[in-house]
Design a binder for these strands. Structure first.
Lengths: 203, 203
DNA sequence: TTCCTTGGAGAACGGCGGTTCTCAACAGTA
DNA sequence: TACTGTTGAGAACCGCCGTTCTCCAAGGAA
């Protein structure tokens, strides 16, 4: 086993354990036992538990966002359907065995601003998600993407939290319905804005 | 100092520390030092750290929900304004110094289902909030309160999480705008339903 | 074979956690 | 005053944590 394979095995074990039990509740020795990597090599690869936590969060961010984007891009080009597909994907995720909410929200709730690295990683993750939602929203409703995406982000995070606390049932569907209503509202206000602008031009 | 006063002082200290730093990060000795209550009395009043955590969550639930309800009931009787006032109150809460998100979401994210008491308290809190939102939504949009409240809950929790991660700015306003759009959508579909029903009766 | 490096297993260390125990001080009472 | 029960301060206990260190086995090179 070379260092690269050890890194992956440690990260795999850390991901499973951190996500299931939280950051503070899993010890280095749990990760060592689950990964089969010796303590010495583990510390050579990661240096400290803090670094391992950061690596876990970084990899989770990448994997989570690319899984979402892949699903959404596969549903086709209709902008409105793309936004709604986000919630279909969330529904699939919520139903996975072992689902326990958003790794970042959980980590941030556990450590808060006391752990600046974790807080920063959480902010980066949510900002990237907001940027992605903004792209989707802008395509569905040009000119109102920013405001719509801010609202969609609330619905997404709310659905994740509700699914984690209450179990999967219904949160994704409620989120999808809310998103549809927000899309309609944004579309209506866009139409009203265009109408008003045209009147201004005519007058 | 009698036992009742000791209980309050311990709970006050526990509330501040647990909320700021998380459950596992604060030790019994921190609470003893902050409250000025001796270890012996502390254990006589609460028995264990678990019990203290439960008591902290219970009191937080009561205080949080009654503060919200008090604010909302003070804005007057208009049902739509009452729903929107929820987000005004959230905005005030987010701006408080030391705001760090929802104590229950944080606790649940930290310990998850590993701590059944904490998970149950979180579920109770969110169910009570949902029941309250359902009452408000039912008054604003009779017959569609249940579905609307499910969506509003997502927006509320999403706003809390976003405010905690990103700082207060904008989350409450975005939540208010989303809630207004959801109210409009529910009202429209109610009007459409009534219209359809009347046509059925006429035919 | 002999030497040297590498890696793994796990002991060791220093610190901190929740909880219990000891002991001295003190209040109330006869 | 002498006795009793209660209290608070903090030591003690036991176990866990992250991290480092020791020791030994294995394996390639000369």
């Amino acid at each position: 086993m070379d260092d690269e394979e050890a890194r992956q095995r440690v990260l795999d074990a850390a991901e499973a354990l951190f996500y299931e039990r939280g950051l503070q509740a899993v010890g280095i020795d749990d990760i060592r036992a689950a990964s089969g990597v010796s303590l010495k090599r583990l510390y050579r690869c990661f240096g400290s538990k803090h670094e391992l936590v950061s690596a876990y969060l970084d990899r989770t961010d990448l994997r989570w966002r690319s899984a979402l984007a892949e699903y959404v891009s596969a549903v086709g080009g209709d902008p409105r359907e793309a936004v709604l597909a986000v919630f279909d994907w969330l529904g699939l995720w919520f139903a996975e065995p072992g689902f326990r909410g958003c790794a970042f929200i959980n980590a941030h709730g556990e450590l808060g601003e006391v752990a600046p690295d974790v807080a920063a990683a959480t902010r980066r993750h949510k900002e990237a998600l907001l940027a992605y939602l903004t792209r989707l929203a802008e395509r569905a409703c040009p000119g109102a993407g920013r405001a719509l995406a801010n609202q969609l982000l609330l619905v997404v995070d709310g659905a994740i939290v509700t699914a984690a606390v209450h179990g999967a049932s219904g949160a994704a569907a409620a989120g999808r319905a809310a998103a549809a209503a927000l899309l309609d509202a944004a579309e209506h206000s866009r139409a009203a804005r265009l109408h008003r602008d045209q009147q201004v031009i005519r007058s």
